[in-house]
Design a protein around this nucleic acid. Structure first.
Length: 503
RNA sequence: GGCUGGGUAGUUCAGAUGGUUAGAACGCCACACUCAUAAUGUGGAAGUCGCGGGUUCGAGUCCCGCCCCAGCUACCA
């Protein structure tokens, strides 16, 4: 069975991982975990983009060889994502031999099928002597490079290879319109459609001055231009062109930042079409994390320390906050003030306290053994509908709404406890009612553990274990659909989400 | 400039096809409860729905104009 293959963007090896990167990884991870929860095989790729000029400069500044530099950063990013409980099962660096091999094979495959897909042309751009590279866009202010404002940019021509992007415009446009190649959310799709409707120009895809890169097949001194090559990581990670790659490809989902949608939604599908390969099924472009309303980025120099944010309340809490409050669709804001508020309300006072009080009552009134099911309580009905709504939201990659279902169910459960007042039933000796209430609470907790697992794997695992369940909540969707806990021995865990002492 | 979105309670946001007193969460105030991480529940205060016109019996929801914010605008991952 072909796995659900999803990827995140590969990150530039020229700085530390920050909150913006984290949102993407954690969001993709929640989606990966959701598919595993449904029992699907999943393949989940992350990695590093290492062939940029900036990377060389960063290595030089650090005084180490480029490969040493990128390996160091690769380790740093990978371990950060693992610390955030990301469950990727492949990690690609674009300096790996398998990537160079995949890129070369893909370009050759395009040449075989469409000999005129590539042609020699002249690229003309503004060249900065200081940076030793071409500059454009926001790097150019008043005809000068922002890094070297004392020097004039020199209009320079160089001979290199062009990709006939324009030839695939109609086909890419049609694929998006037909829904065969989905671009989500809609705001991003509209942008891409507009770009395509305006037409595409051919693009230069090689550089002659950069030895740090993948050699362009059939040329003596050219390397593949970095972002053209970077896109191909999704394919080279499947093992392409070696046997077995087509058991993984096409990708089901590319998760990317909104800033790079055009590359993924116009150029990447054109490359694949030229090669006669199937298109990815979906590109999801998330919004950006802002810091107190301002852009967070390495270039702005205000990147919040990711380690600091993780240390605040632990990795699961940060995952929860990013996906539930910052959001995976629109831009969102990160402040410690809000992070603390959401932690207290959703996690400590919400799920954590609900688990605590429910399990404490099962222990106190029934020696920790979940009573048998006596009938359907109102809380069971609420649980079923929460699971239903959650499922629909996850399938639509609406992580915020999915998380909302968890919060809603917690609220339902707290209200149910107040209404049914188990302590009163115990005092009155109404054992039948008390059994029903305690069973319903246990079922509710199981549902919560399962639903929370894509968001907070570690904490939901702890809750799962407290409910006397073996293994992990992964692939345990059946328990959410129909909890079976009669006779199971539960144990109240330590506080799932301890509250820091208030000063 | 062009194109997309958006401007709704202190804050973050919901509000298909126009229709009773505009909703939720967090925060705030009061009360209740005691199983629980001083947690939870109930009630309450809180909004000229960006501005100005228009259509309509009736508009946050449609039309026109304007203001403000964000994004995209091709080789910036």
């Amino acid at each position: 069975m072909k796995p659900y293959y999803l990827t995140t963007a590969i990150d530039y090896s020229n700085g530390d991982p920050h909150l913006g990167h984290a949102l993407e990884k954690v969001g993709a991870d929640a989606i990966a975990r959701w598919h595993r929860l449904r029992g699907e095989p999943v393949r989940f790729l992350m990695g590093m983009d290492e062939h940029a000029q900036k990377v060389l400069q960063a290595a030089e500044q650090a005084g180490v060889a480029p490969q040493v530099w990128v390996d160091r950063l690769s380790e740093r990013f990978d371990s950060t994502w693992k610390r955030l409980h990301c469950s990727h099962d492949d990690w690609i660096q674009t300096t790996e031999p398998r990537h160079a091999k995949g890129v070369a094979a893909l370009i050759e495959r395009i040449r075989e099928r469409h000999p005129d897909a590539f042609y020699d042309g002249e690229y003309e751009g503004l060249y900065c002597i200081g940076c030793e590279e071409f500059k454009s866009g926001s790097q150019v202010v008043e005809m000068r490079c922002i890094e070297h404002p004392s020097r004039e940019l020199v209009p320079t021509k160089e001979q290199n290879t062009f990709f006939r992007l324009s030839a695939w415009r109609d086909a890419v446009l049609a694929a998006i319109q037909a829904g065969q190649f989905r671009v989500e959310p809609a705001i991003r799709r509209n942008e891409v459609l507009r770009v395509l409707e305006d037409g595409l120009l051919d693009i230069s895809v090689s550089r002659s001055r950069l030895p740090w890169g993948v050699p362009f097949p059939g040329t003596a001194d050219q390397t593949v231009y970095v972002w053209f090559e970077a896109l191909m990581n999704y394919l080279s990670a499947t093992g392409f062109p070696d046997a077995g790659w087509d058991e993984i490809w096409p990708a089901d989902l590319h998760v990317v930042g909104k800033g790079i949608t055009r590359f993924h939604c116009a150029i990447w599908p054109a490359i694949l079409m030229a090669a006669g390969l199937p298109l990815p099924r979906m590109v999801w472009a998330h919004g950006y994390v802002q810091w107190g309303g301002a852009k967070v980025s390495k270039s702005e120099g205000n990147a919040v320390s990711l380690d600091l944010a993780i240390d605040r309340h632990g990795p699961d809490a940060l995952r929860w906050f990013l996906l539930r409050d910052v959001g995976f669709e629109n831009d969102g804001d990160f402040t410690f003030e809000r992070f603390d508020a959401v932690y207290d309300s959703d996690l400590a006072n919400g799920i954590g306290n609900l688990a605590s009080r429910s399990l404490a009552m099962i222990e106190k009134y029934r020696a920790g053994v979940v009573p048998g099911l006596l009938g359907q309580e109102s809380l069971d009905v609420a649980g079923e509908s929460a699971v239903h709504a959650y499922k629909a939201a996850m399938a639509a990659i609406d992580l915020k709404v999915a998380a909302q279902q968890i919060v809603n169910l917690v609220t339902e459960a707290n209200g149910y406890i107040t209404t049914s007042a188990p302590w009163g039933l115990a005092k009155a000796g109404d054992d039948a009612r008390l059994d029903a209430v305690l069973a319903a609470l246990a079922h509710c907790l199981v549902r919560l553990a399962v639903m929370a697992s894509p968001f907070m794997p570690e904490k939901s695992q702890a809750l799962w274990a407290a409910l006397g369940q073996g293994g992990t909540p992964e692939a345990a969707w059946a328990m959410a659909a129909e909890p079976r806990l009669a006779g199971v021995k539960v144990a109240k865990p330590e506080n799932l989400f301890p509250k820091p002492p208030t000063p």
